[in-house]
């Protein structure tokens, strides 16, 4: 194995960490909605990657991390309501709008947050991976180990559920 691709080398491991730690962390966060748990699971996942560094080629590190966190989540984490904090959210329409509209916008966002918290874990993870992470359906299907059709279904269900809660805008 090329030494640059050897995850057992700490420099390579650090590079893998810098590349993937944030998206893996958010992936868990979409599932459990708890930052402390997301921290723990990310740490566990990377320690497991280190322990299995000899068996894991660099190309498989990403899917290894997702699989480990996904399994750990399914095994250990009690399903909780996810409340996304979006205090820093910056809707792009805010600048040119009237104060009245700004208020409506905030109210609208508040509604979305609550509605997302009420989605099922599967729907929410797929939906947020697509919306926030900008991942394509095929990629989401791989990460969650489901079919593209299932992703489509979850997306449709998520949108229908959100619209039902928020009402027609």
């Amino acid at each position: 194995m090329d030494s640059l691709e050897d995850i057992c080398k700490e420099a390579t491991f650090k590079k893998v960490y810098n590349t993937y730690n944030k998206e893996v962390w958010r992936f868990i966060y979409y599932k459990c909605g708890n930052t402390a748990q997301a921290d723990d699971l990310v740490q566990d996942a990377f320690i497991k990657l280190w322990q299995n560094c000899a068996k894991t080629p660099l190309a498989k590190a990403k899917s290894f991390l997702y699989t480990i966190t996904n399994n750990a989540f399914l095994n250990e984490i009690a399903h909780k309501k996810v409340v996304l904090k979006h205090a820093k959210a910056q809707p792009n329409r805010i600048n040119s709008e009237s104060p009245e509209y700004v208020f409506e916008e905030k109210e609208f966002n508040q509604k979305i947050e609550n509605a997302i918290a009420n989605l099922t874990e599967g729907q929410r993870t797929a939906f947020l991976l697509n919306r926030i992470e900008g991942k394509k359906y095929a990629e989401i299907a791989t990460l969650l180990d489901i079919s593209v059709k299932a992703v489509e279904k979850r997306m449709s269900q998520a949108l229908a559920s959100l619209r039902k809660e928020i009402g027609n805008v």
């Binding site: 650090k14 960490y17 810098n18 730690n21 944030k22 962390w25 958010r26 966060y29 979409y30 930052t35 921290d39 990310v42 740490q43 990377f46 996304l84 904090k85 979006h86 205090a87 820093k88 959210a89 910056q90 809707p91 792009n92 609208f108 966002n109 979305i112 947050e113 997302i116 939906f127 947020l128 919306r131 926030i132 900008g134 949108l159 959100l162 619209r163 928020i166 805008v169």
Partner: peptide, 20 residues
């Protein structure tokens, strides 16, 4: 509309260094 609004939601900052 909902999808577009969701895209602007922000997740908490990841404490990367602390985790590492």
């Amino acid at each position: 509309e909902i999808s577009a609004a969701t895209a602007h939601l922000k997740t908490p900052e990841v404490a990367s260094d602390q985790n590492y």
